[in-house]
Amino acid sequence: MTTGLLHLHSFLAYLVLAGITISFVYALFGALSGKAFGEKDRKLGLFGLIPSHIQLVVGIILYFLSPLGFSNLSGAAMSDSVSRLYALEHPMINVIAVALITIGYSRAKKLEESRNRFRSIYMFYGIAFILILSRIPWNAWLN
């Protein structure tokens, strides 16, 4: 079961990165062009929000089932960079990134001015994108 969840988690990572990229680019162009923020723009913001939340749920389940996750959280694991990445850094940074995506989308719904709505999405999604890229376990993900 852990292997299947790990494959799902890896596959969803591609969807999350693509969704955040689409949302970010579209919001950036929307802000720069000065167009009005409409229903289509709100739905495009969901391209980054929904996959990231699904990924978070799968990641939390995997964190408690995998031997690299919660069960590996100890003082000895903190001295090993790979163990620390899987047990602490990757989960915490990605939880923060998903929180930023959620905040950016929620703010965009509440703001009145279109430019500020677009700006909320591209700024929060952009920061989250950088955080996610910084904590992907590239050595395991590309194999």
Results as ranks from 00 to 15, higher is better:
Lys43Ser: 08
Leu5Gln: 05
Val95Gln: 03
Ala97Pro: 09
Ile136Met: 10
Gly4Glu: 12
Asn94Ala: 06
Gly59Lys: 03
Gln55Tyr: 13
Ser10Tyr: 11
Met78Pro: 00
Leu5Asp: 06
Glu89Gly: 00
Ile22Ala: 08
Ser120Trp: 05
Leu32Pro: 00
Leu28Ala: 14
Gly104Trp: 09
Asn143His: 15
Ala18Gln: 06
Met1Lys: 01
Ser83Asn: 13
Leu6Tyr: 13
Phe124Ser: 04
Gln55Val: 02
Ser23Asp: 00
Val25Cys: 08
Asn139Met: 06
Asp41Leu: 06
Phe24Val: 04
Arg119Gln: 11
Ser71Met: 09
Lys110Arg: 15
Tyr26His: 11
Ile50Glu: 09
Leu68Asn: 03
Ser10His: 12
Thr102Gln: 04
Ala31Leu: 07
Thr2Met: 04
His90Trp: 13
Ala99Gly: 07
Leu28Asn: 03
Ala128Gln: 09
Gly30Lys: 03
Phe118Asp: 10
Ser134Lys: 00
Val98Leu: 02
Tyr105Ser: 02
Ile61Arg: 00
Ala140Arg: 13
Tyr105Cys: 04
Leu65Glu: 15
Val25Ser: 03
Leu28Thr: 09
Arg117Cys: 11
Leu17Thr: 04
Phe118Pro: 05
Leu73Val: 08
Arg119Ala: 13
Trp138Leu: 07
Leu12Tyr: 14
Leu12Thr: 04
Lys110Asn: 15
Glu39Asn: 11
Ile22Ser: 00
Leu68Ala: 03
Ile22Gly: 00
Arg84Met: 14
Met1Leu: 10
Phe124Arg: 03
Phe64Gln: 06
Lys40Pro: 00
Gly4Gln: 11
Ala13His: 13
Arg84Glu: 07
Ser23Tyr: 06
Ile121Cys: 07
Leu5Gly: 04
Ala18Thr: 12
Phe24Ile: 05
Leu44Ser: 02
Leu15Lys: 00
Lys40Asp: 08
Leu68Glu: 08
Gly4Val: 10
Asn94His: 15
Leu73Asp: 08
Met1Tyr: 14
Ile136Glu: 02
Ile101Phe: 02
Ala27Thr: 03
Glu113Tyr: 10
Arg117Trp: 05
His7Asn: 13
Ala31Thr: 03
Ile22Met: 01
Trp138Ile: 04
Leu65Asp: 10
Ala31Phe: 14
Leu28Ser: 06
Leu32Ile: 12
Ile96Ala: 01
Ile60Ser: 02
Ile127Tyr: 01
Leu133Cys: 12
Phe70Leu: 09
Ala97Gln: 08
Leu68Ser: 01
Ile127Phe: 09
Phe70Met: 12
Leu100Ile: 04
Pro51Val: 02
Gly45Glu: 14
Lys43Thr: 07
Leu65Thr: 14
Gly34Lys: 10
Ala87Phe: 11
Ser52Ile: 07
Thr102Leu: 03
Trp138Arg: 06
Leu62Phe: 14
Lys43Asp: 08
